[in-house]
Write a protein that binds this DNA or RNA. Structure first.
Length: 152
DNA sequence: GCCAACGTTGGC
DNA sequence: GCCAACGTTGGC
């Protein structure tokens, strides 16, 4: 069992969108970064915990909890020439981009980025590291426990 | 809109 | 394999 922080732009997919999706589940489409893809493809397991993070928005921060609900499979948007995530170099035989499904657990009062930075226990969180741009980052069990027990 | 930081591309 | 140029991310 591992833990992750996954960034989503709420204009595209917010915690409310996840809560109201069929089966409260969304495929994590649109990741086009190899490191983030590798986490989904190689390291994530069904049941892993997910901190659902809103990024590129007026109030960036953790908006709720989810968990991984599928193993990795090809991101269908890479084959869709009308999608902004279309990748002409990817083929069905050799898909470049993989994703997992994520299922809603709960919404919480938004934990702003600035609030996360206030806690010594979270000082080493990957998402808080200077210059971090990865949309999927590992979360330690200690960080997960601190956030879910003390900030939610 | 700015800009720091980082990832990718492609010429050599 | 190097690295300059370019594109993207994402907080502010």
């Amino acid at each position: 069992m591992r833990y992750w922080l996954m960034k989503s732009e709420p204009d595209e997919a917010s915690i409310d969108d996840l809560a109201h999706a069929p089966h409260r589940t969304l495929p994590w489409t649109g990741v086009r970064n190899y490191q983030a893809r590798n986490f989904m493809r190689d390291t994530m397991r069904v049941g892993d915990g997910v901190l659902f993070y809103h990024s590129s928005c007026p109030e960036p921060g953790i908006a709720g909890l989810a968990h991984v609900s599928s193993t990795a499979y090809p991101d269908p948007t890479q084959f869709d020439s009308k999608s902004p995530y279309y990748d002409a170099k990817s083929t069905h035989e050799n898909p470049r981009w993989m994703l997992v499904d994520v299922v809603f657990e709960k919404k919480c009062a938004l934990i702003p980025l600035a609030a996360l930075r206030e806690h010594e226990a979270l000082a080493d969180m990957r998402v808080l590291a200077k210059g971090n741009r990865l949309s999927i980052t590992p979360v330690t069990e200690a960080e997960w426990t601190f956030i879910t027990n003390h900030l939610m």
